[in-house]
């Protein structure tokens, strides 16, 4: 029986460039949302500049977006909370329908203005209403869509930069997480002394990498 032992499993690196899943309008909305979920502050960029929208875009285009590997056979029946997610929507479908629902909701309630045209305070107000279950979308559960965002945006902020978020390791630098250094034998005994070295990504560090002139 033919088989290939030890297939390589090296990771793919996400590169900057055009949106792969989102339309331009969707991407603009997502960039606004991720900047409300993780707002910029004087020390650390917000979700947008950290690449959280790019991260989600690449994830939705990939296996996560299509729910690859998950159990997808029916019948689909609504169960108890304890029985876990039973929606037939893939994450890609949830975002597509959720973003459309958000756009319709904002325009209907703000004189035709979409989410990105609202002030930061108004945007926070909309998201808080969705979080509280006070908003209904036509095609998907609005609260479920927001829960997905609350899972995916911090993942973009804190996952390895090779996935498109955590740009320049800003999320890791904010908290002092050293990334994939992988060897702390020199620090295990240094109790209550903050680890001093900056983070390293699977892609190394920019200052270790030569630039094209």
């Amino acid at each position: 029986m033919p088989w290939t032992p030890f297939p390589t499993s090296a990771p793919d690196f996400e590169r900057p460039g055009p949106w792969q899943f989102f339309t331009t309008d969707e991407a603009t909305a997502v960039e606004a949302i991720v900047d409300r979920i993780i707002p910029p502050d004087p020390d650390t960029p917000g979700g947008k500049d950290a690449g959280c929208a790019v991260f989600i875009d690449r994830q939705l285009k990939g296996p996560y977006g299509s729910a690859a590997g998950l159990y997808r056979l029916g019948p689909y029946t609504k169960g108890t909370k304890e029985q876990g997610p039973q929606s037939a929507n893939t994450p890609a479908e949830l975002y597509r329908k959720g973003l459309a629902g958000l756009d319709r909701y904002c325009k209907a309630n703000n004189g035709g203005k979409g989410f990105t045209q609202l002030s930061a305070e108004q945007q926070d107000g909309v998201l808080k209403k969705i979080e509280a279950g006070e908003v209904k979308f036509d095609e998907v559960d609005a609260q479920g869509f927001f829960d997905a965002l609350l899972k995916d945006v911090p993942e973009g902020f804190f996952s390895d930069p090779i996935h498109g978020g955590n740009k320049n390791m800003v999320g890791w630098s904010m908290i002092g997480f050293p990334g994939i250094r992988y060897d702390y034998r020199d620090w295990i005994h240094r109790h209550n002394e903050r680890y001093p070295h900056p983070p390293v990504s699977i892609a190394g560090r920019a200052d270790w990498t030569p630039h094209k002139s």
């Binding site: 032992p5 990771p11 296996p63 996952s159 390895d160 090779i162 994939i180 992988y182 699977i202």
Partner: peptide, 22 residues
């Protein structure tokens, strides 16, 4: 089949998204 050198070398074994989350 799984093997240390090909499946989880130190260069990318520490990928929280890939292994823990996905």
């Amino acid at each position: 089949w799984r093997n240390t050198a090909t499946d989880h070398p130190p260069g990318y074994a520490a990928d929280e998204l890939r292994y823990r989350i996905r």
